[in-house]
Simulated assay, not measured.
Amino acid sequence: MKLHDLKPTPGSRKDRKRVGRGPGGTDKTAGRGHKGQKSRSGAGKGQFFEGGRSRLIARLPKRGFNNVGTTYEIVKLSQLDGIEADTLDRTAFEVLGLVRRRGRPVKLLASGEVTRALTIHVDAASQAAIQAVEAAGGKVILPEAQTSTDDAKAE
């Protein structure tokens, strides 16, 4: 017996049901019955549909403030301790495995200590992290913020 001789046992494999493909049992209505919302393609009720009344989530009072803020990729000073590079930026963090999600900005936090001078390019940093890096002789480079005078020049 060879690999190309292998075949499944007769009757062990069954063809899938191809509905709506001409006469032969499951043609015409394709097992959906006649007319109505549930017979249409893409139709159906939403997950929170409650028979036509207002959904529970819509009936509950809305309170407070929902802050949809920026979610950062966090890099801590303690993670930079064993790294030999003098200049660190997003690509270096990705290579080292400190940053995973590409769409998120990188923020440096002051958890841990820096023992040598580093130049770090990040999108945001805490004041304590900036002070700790500068105390060790390094610097944190942040992107320049747009000011109102820059906006006026563009117009």
Rank of each mutant, 00 (worst) to 15 (best):
M1E: 05
K2C: 08
L3P: 00
L3H: 03
H4N: 07
H4C: 04
K7A: 14
T9C: 04
T9E: 07
G11S: 00
S12E: 04
S12T: 09
R13L: 13
D15A: 10
D15H: 04
D15W: 03
R16S: 10
R18S: 14
R18M: 15
G20M: 09
G20F: 12
D27M: 07
D27T: 13
D27E: 10
G31C: 00
R32V: 01
H34S: 05
Q37C: 12
K38M: 15
K38G: 13
K38R: 13
G42R: 01
G44A: 05
G44D: 09
G46F: 12
Q47N: 11
F48C: 11
F49Q: 11
F49G: 06
R53Q: 08
R55P: 00
L56Y: 05
P61F: 11
K62D: 14
R63C: 07
F65D: 06
N66M: 12
N66A: 15
N67M: 11
V68H: 12
V68G: 01
T71M: 10
Y72S: 07
Y72K: 05
Y72A: 13
L77F: 05
Q79A: 08
Q79H: 05
E84K: 14
A85T: 08
D86A: 15
T87R: 07
A92P: 01
E94C: 03
V95W: 03
V95F: 05
L96E: 05
L98Y: 06
V99T: 13
V99Q: 06
R100G: 09
R104C: 01
K107M: 15
L109M: 15
L109F: 11
L109R: 13
A110M: 04
A110P: 03
G112L: 00
G112F: 02
E113S: 04
T115W: 01
A117I: 04
A117L: 09
L118V: 02
L118Q: 01
T119A: 03
I120A: 07
H121D: 15
V122N: 01
V122D: 02
A124G: 09
S126M: 07
Q127S: 12
A128P: 01
A129C: 04
A129Y: 03
I130S: 06
Q131S: 15
Q131M: 07
Q131P: 02
Q131Y: 11
V133R: 00
V133C: 06
A135D: 05
G137F: 09
G137M: 10
G138P: 02
K139M: 09
K139G: 11
K139C: 10
K139Q: 09
V140G: 01
I141M: 05
L142C: 02
E144I: 13
Q146Y: 08
D150V: 14
A152C: 01
E155M: 14
